[in-house]
Each structure stands twice: as C-alpha cells, then as structure tokens.
Computed example of a mutant assay.
Amino acid sequence: MKSTNHHDERIAKMSFASVYPHYISKVEKKGRTKEELNEVIEWLTGFDEEQLKEQLRLKASFEEFFQKAKLNPNAHLIKGVICGYRIEDIENPLTQKVRYMDKLVEELARGRKMEKILRSES
C-alpha cells in the first residue's frame, strides 16, 4: 500500500498532543503504564519527560515534533505492518517516523517485553 501526498500532509499537520491521549488509553487498557509509554517515546525521539511535556504544551504537529527529535539510531530496526502499511516500505520520512511510533505503541499494548520494544542490534 502506497501512501498519498494528501495522507502524508495530513499526518504532518496532525497534532502530537491530539494523538498522545489515545496512545495512553491504548496501553493502559492492556495493563501497561503511561511511564512505559513515555519510555518508549523517549527511546525513539530522545525527548525526556520535560521535553515531552513541552511538545504537548506547544501542541506541536508531528512535523514539528520530529524536527526537534533525535531519532534513535536503531529506529530502522522497527519493521512490520501498521495501519495497513509496511513500515520499511514507507517512502515519506516523516510518515515513516510516525508509523515507527505507532508500531512501538502497538507492541507495548500487546504486552511485548520492553527490551524487545527498545531494539538493540546485539
């Protein structure tokens, strides 16, 4: 499935703050915690708790959010299908980063062990 320019633009303009509560709800329904969610987000973006709060306060779009992020060098190890898209085949770099986060949140909600979610190349 190939994403369209319209789809990519919609994702870029979407507010991270509007999606974050859904991430929290998704993981808490499955017995995981907001703290674990924030750990996963920090691993992917480099944002500590205060920086994450600032992004939420600013209502940063995903484009602004990922412009300020320091993507984890092992993010390319995130593979699979999310929202009908194979992550490693997504051509738009921003859309791919958003899907990385979606995939990590899904893995957390599904009960995957944290050390597997926070990939390392060992």
Rank of each mutant, 00 (worst) to 15 (best):
F62I: 02
I11W: 04
P21T: 14
K13G: 08
A17I: 02
T33S: 15
R110I: 01
K53P: 00
A109I: 05
K59V: 01
S122L: 10
V40I: 13
L104E: 06
S18C: 04
A69D: 12
N38F: 02
H76V: 10
S25M: 00
K26F: 09
S15A: 12
R119T: 09
P21L: 10
E64A: 15
E39R: 15
E88V: 01
V27M: 03
S61D: 10
K26A: 08
E35V: 05
M101E: 10
W43C: 05
K68Q: 14
F62K: 13
A12L: 08
V27A: 05
K13Q: 15
M114Q: 11
A12F: 05
K29A: 06
I11M: 13
E115H: 15
V40G: 03
E64Q: 15
S61E: 07
E91H: 05
T33L: 06
E91W: 03
Q96F: 05
V81Q: 09
E107C: 04
K68C: 06
M101C: 08
K2Y: 13
L52T: 06
P93T: 13
E50C: 00
A17Q: 15
H7D: 11
Y20K: 11
L44G: 10
H6T: 11
K79D: 06
E107R: 10
I11T: 13
L44K: 07
R112F: 13
L104C: 11
Y100A: 08
V81R: 07
F62P: 13
Q67W: 12
E35T: 14
K103L: 13
G111W: 07
F65W: 11
I78R: 01
G46A: 10
I41C: 06
A109Y: 01
R32V: 01
W43A: 03
S3E: 14
V40Q: 01
E121I: 14
M14W: 14
K53V: 03
V105K: 01
V98Y: 13
K53C: 03
I78D: 00
K26N: 07
D102I: 00
L37T: 06
K116E: 15
Y23V: 07
K116C: 02
M101H: 04
K79C: 07
I87R: 02
R119Y: 09
H7I: 09
A69M: 04
L94A: 08
W43Q: 07
E115W: 13
E107L: 14
E50H: 09
E115P: 04
E121C: 08
R99I: 02
Q67P: 02
I90M: 12
K68I: 04
L44E: 04
E42W: 11
F16G: 03
H7Y: 14
R86F: 11
F47K: 11
T33P: 05
R119I: 12
S15I: 00
P73I: 07
Q67K: 14
E28T: 15
T45W: 03
I11S: 04
S120D: 09
K29W: 00
R57C: 00
R10N: 12
E121Y: 10
A69K: 10
L44C: 06
G80P: 07
K97V: 02
K34N: 12
I87S: 00
F47D: 03
Q67F: 13
N5M: 04
H76T: 01
K13H: 11
E9N: 13
R112D: 06
Q96V: 06
V105L: 10
Q96I: 05
A75N: 01
W43V: 09
E107Q: 14
L58R: 15
